[in-house]
């Protein structure tokens, strides 16, 4: 039997699925429209409620006022500086937390000794929420970005660490056996089998960590320091500048959404080998 006939008579190839997949991934206009109905309704309600003064304009300004106030903040209060301050803290903390979490997660996943050394301590630290650490760390390093970076790093670290550890422990024994049969060295085993095998789980942790980080920076900046979007939102509340408060909320929401979307894209790209993985 020749090679070509084998190929020709094997119809079960799923290589020709590309167009189908692309179809599934592209959001159809109708689906998008359905998703927009509710936000638009809320916006409309907001407009009506503000216009008819169902709620006093001090507590609920018009959407148009809010939009105007956004431009005003950018122009006159250097809103982008606060915004970038928050982004910078989150980015640094996210990178440190992820690197530490993946690194220590791999080490603990591979070595029972490492897990035994770090396990109890980490468990203890884990049960004190990040925010509860903030006051102490502020006393040590001051109200600058450093304290927030430390606290958020801690918050990112744990989901990444735990998911990495669990992902490594869950790598199929069969694959480890295969690596043995192929005489892979320990390092080759880690690089070719264990890390890729744990990657789905690692990325779940990273994605979760990213969303936690963004949420936490708002709180941390509200509690200490004089800049950042979290600072602005609490200041706006105490000065009853509801329009600015709303601007901050919307910006926080949009950034959070974008962070999660980009994490989903990263997941989809890295895990493209996974069957039916749709993020």
């Amino acid at each position: 039997m020749s090679v070509t006939t084998v190929n020709a008579t094997t119809p079960a190839v799923r290589k020709t699925q590309q167009p189908d997949k692309a179809n599934k991934r592209r959001v159809k206009p109708r689906d998008l429209a359905i998703g927009l109905v509710l936000p638009l309704t809320i916006l409309l309600l907001w407009q009506v409620a503000a216009q008819r003064a169902w709620i006093s304009p001090i507590f609920l300004p018009l959407p148009s006022t809010t939009l105007f106030s956004f431009f005003d903040m950018v122009e006159r209060q250097s809103f982008h500086i606060d915004f970038l301050a928050s982004i910078s803290i989150v980015t640094q903390a996210f990178v440190y937390g992820t690197l530490l979490g993946v690194g220590l997660g791999i080490a603990a996943g591979l070595s029972q000794t490492v897990e035994r050394i770090f396990g109890p301590t980490l468990d203890g630290i884990r049960h004190i929420p990040g925010i509860a650490w903030l006051p102490l760390i502020v006393l040590w390093v001051g109200i600058g970005p450093a304290a927030k970076i430390v606290v958020i790093t801690k918050t990112v670290f744990f989901p990444v660490f735990l998911n990495t550890l669990q992902g490594i422990r869950a790598v199929e024994k069969n694959f480890i056996e295969l690596a043995d049969v192929l005489t892979l060295t320990r390092w080759q085993l880690v690089r070719k089998v264990i890390i890729p095998g744990a990657m789905p789980s690692i990325l779940v942790g990273v994605r979760y960590g990213a969303s936690l980080a963004w949420a936490l920076v708002v709180v941390a900046e509200g509690l200490s320091g004089m800049e950042g979007i979290g600072y602005l939102i609490f200041r706006a509340q105490s000065l009853l500048m509801t329009d600015q408060l709303l601007v901050c909320m919307v910006v926080i929401g949009v950034v959070g959404f974008l962070i999660d979307r980009s994490m989903a894209l990263l997941q989809r790209h890295v895990l493209r080998w996974k069957q039916g993985f749709e993020g």
């Binding site: 192929l182 080759q188 095998g197």
Partner: peptide
């Protein structure tokens, strides 16, 4: 027992790693 994260060619190549 093909590794799902490697392409067919990389799976076969893995046997030549050493």
């Amino acid at each position: 027992r093909l590794l799902p994260w490697l392409t067919l060619e990389d799976n076969i190549d893995l046997a030549l790693e050493n």
